[in-house]
């Protein structure tokens, strides 16, 4: 199995994307921001199309779109975060998130039609589609880039984890103690935007959602301690990716992303039933 180059690339990229998703996913679940992660993966495609319309590199448009929308959600969410404490207030962001990504998807539809009408525009759509790859279709360079970006995001998340945890659990107290809660919130969503941009290209938007939500949700059910929880979330995500890749390799008609999500979801639903 490891003699196949596509499998080695998939394992390399998958391992680090799983780590990044598991570790940042623990905070995403803690802060009730799974919807934000989902929305960020949706804006990647319109971003790539808009970049093609403007004649710049599509990957640049994709990263810019996710990072700007991530920062935007963070900025707009400020009022609700400071209002009332804890997780309930975070839920209020959902209206803003839904409105923002629907508008951006509407723009995506505009660009899609525009390319469809212009001569030779179909190639623009094609190029955008090829950006959204499958984990089994990665080249060696792409896999290394995905692994590097994911590693940087993981390290950055761990680096801000102490103040971020403080700001997530008791925002008022953290703010009073001089922790820049708002800046941390925005910074975390920007990191999430980078994860979304990299993951939608390398492994697909579906894997991003599955790996952000399911392993971390299971870890939250099992472990109360943040350190154990973050480690568990990373471990569950790794197990899902490795198991899923092996399973998809063994069963050719099973898409790798479906296999990975199936294992991650089994872990989560198992934790719901058992814990």
């Amino acid at each position: 199995m490891l003699s196949q180059e596509f499998m080695r690339n998939a394992l390399l990229a998958g391992t680090f994307v799983a780590l990044a998703c598991g570790v940042s996913g623990w905070f995403v679940v803690l802060r009730g921001q799974v919807f934000a992660g989902d929305a960020l993966s949706h804006v990647a495609f319109p971003g790539a199309l808009a970049a093609a319309a403007a004649g710049v590199d599509q990957r640049l448009g994709l990263v810019l779109a996710t990072v700007i929308v991530g920062a935007g959600i963070g900025v707009l969410g400020r009022a609700t975060l400071s209002g009332r404490g804890g997780g309930v207030a975070l839920a209020a962001d959902d209206t803003a998130i839904g409105i923002a990504f629907t508008f951006i998807l509407g723009l995506g539809l505009f660009f899609l039609t525009r390319f469809g009408l212009s001569s030779g525009g179909a190639s623009g759509i094609q190029a955008a589609h090829t950006l959204f790859g499958s984990i089994f279709g990665l080249g060696a360079g792409e896999a290394r880039l995905a692994a590097a970006v994911a590693l940087v995001v993981t390290v950055a998340t761990v680096a801000i984890s102490r103040p971020l945890l403080f700001a997530s659990v008791t925002p008022e107290v953290a703010g009073a103690r001089g922790v820049p809660t708002r800046l941390l919130g925005i910074g975390f969503l920007v990191l999430l935007g980078v994860v979304a941009a990299e993951a939608t290209q390398a492994v697909g938007a579906l894997l991003l959602l599955g790996l952000l939500a399911a392993p971390a949700a299971a870890a939250h059910r099992i472990a109360r301690s943040p350190v154990v929880g973050i480690a568990l979330a990373g471990a569950f995500a790794l197990v899902s990716v490795w198991g899923g890749l092996v399973l998809a390799y063994a069963v050719p008609s099973l898409p790798p992303s479906s296999a990975v999500v199936a294992i991650a979801a089994t872990i989560y639903y198992g934790s719901v039933l058992l814990v």
Partner: peptide, 25 residues
């Protein structure tokens, strides 16, 4: 809590989409 609800909805969506990919395949 809201955080758990958001995670369980996200997991369900991922499972359903994964099933969709499987059906297409």
């Amino acid at each position: 809590t809201w955080s758990e609800e958001s995670a369980s909805i996200g997991t369900f969506q991922a499972v359903a989409l994964a099933a969709g990919f499987l059906f297409v395949s």
